[in-house]
């Protein structure tokens, strides 16, 4: 099938020029994804196109972009679902733009509590599993609070830790009871739970059904109880 895509190019690096949009046409068989389309463009007409990707099946969390203003993982977005128009593909908000669709996820990782293990050793040999959050940044980009207080030139968000960090804080307090007090101190900061305005866009866009909004609400209820 043939599909046109309107992709944001440029940005940040001086020589890259300011951000602008260009249309690209891709011709791929049914079943192809938005990530396949980006690969098609990069291996064809735009070899310098910058975007992030790694696992191609929604496990690594690198390929999140915005399609018509909504955060998605490019690797899980069927090209067929975009038919009938020219979708606008933009990089995530609330993270520093590198160029084109590639952002620097540094601010996201710096917001997460340190030394939280992605996989905890279980007491039983079986039934141990990685954390659900794949740190893709979709929730941070979708949140109206972070979007409002975000400095586009530095990628810095002032005044709100963000949904990914607060979800991680809650998960860590459950996984490691010995760190519950430390996690609570983080959540109780003015830029913690109190800064959340309950828009729940985070939960709506989360590709792994972590529902960060739910974790923030659970933290809020814990505070009220004690």
């Amino acid at each position: 099938m043939t599909q046109r895509l309107r992709i944001q190019l440029g940005g940040q690096a001086p020589a890259a020029g300011s951000a602008h949009f260009e249309d690209f046409e891709v011709n791929l068989p049914s079943g192809a994804t938005l990530l396949d389309a980006l690969e098609y463009i990069r291996t064809g007409v735009a070899p310098d196109l910058m975007y992030r990707h790694s696992c191609h099946h929604g496990s690594c969390g690198t390929c999140a972009v915005r399609v018509d203003g909504k955060e998605v993982l490019a690797c899980l977005t069927a090209l067929d679902s975009l038919a009938g128009g020219i979708p606008v593909i933009e990089p995530l908000r609330a993270l520093k733009l590198e160029k084109d669709l590639a952002v620097d996820p540094g601010a996201l990782f710096r917001s997460l509590p340190k030394n939280t293990s992605h996989l905890r050793e279980s007491e039983v040999e079986h039934y141990i599993r990685f954390e659900d959050c794949i740190e893709c940044g979709s929730c941070v980009s979708a949140c109206p609070v972070t979007a409002r207080s975000w400095d586009a030139s530095t990628g810095k968000v002032e005044g709100f830790l963000g949904p990914a960090a607060l979800a991680a804080v809650h998960r860590e307090s459950l996984n490691s009871p010995e760190r519950a007090e430390e996690m609570r101190t983080v959540a109780e900061r003015p830029d913690g739970v109190a800064a959340c305005e309950k828009h729940f866009d985070c939960s709506r866009v989360c590709p792994r059904m972590v529902y960060p909004g739910k974790h923030i609400e659970m933290l809020r209820r814990e505070f009220a109880r004690t």
Partner: peptide
């Protein structure tokens, strides 16, 4: 490209 964007991540 991005780190691990070739074979490794897939």
């Amino acid at each position: 490209g991005e780190l691990t964007s070739g074979t490794t991540g897939r």
